[in-house]
């Protein structure tokens, strides 16, 4: 940027270094926790699917796990596609 930009007024875009710092703080905070304990997500997913499968026959391929790590809060969304009601009844009768 030349000194003339000073007179051109506002920069076109905000500086990006702040974004870099914030992103690093969030990702590192999560990774440091992860270092001291085992990654629980695979096991959590398996157990959840097992619990649901006790009641409904589900396709393990139709389980989606979505995570959004944040600074103050993270969201974990687990989406399990259930079969049509007819299929659910079959499991219920089988028990």
């Amino acid at each position: 940027m030349s000194w003339l930009d000073f007179f051109r007024g506002q920069r076109k875009e905000p500086p990006t270094a702040t974004a870099a710092k914030e992103r690093l703080q969030i990702v590192l905070a999560h990774e440091r926790i992860g270092r001291t304990r085992e990654d629980f997500l695979p096991k959590l997913q398996q157990e959840l699917v097992a619990v649901v499968a006790r009641y409904v026959s589900i396709d393990p391929g139709k389980v989606n796990v979505n995570l959004d790590r944040g600074g103050d809060m993270s969201t974990l969304a687990i989406e399990i596609e259930l079969p049509a009601p007819s299929a659910m009844r079959v499991v219920a009768q089988a028990r």
């Binding site: 992103r23 969030i26 990702v27 997500l41 695979p42 997913q45 398996q46 796990v65 979505n66 995570l67 959004d68 790590r69 944040g70």
Partner: peptide
Amino acid sequence: ERRVVFDIVNVISGEA
């Protein structure tokens, strides 16, 4: 980076 849940090793080991 905020959306990574599983990775290539989870897939190879059959965890995901």
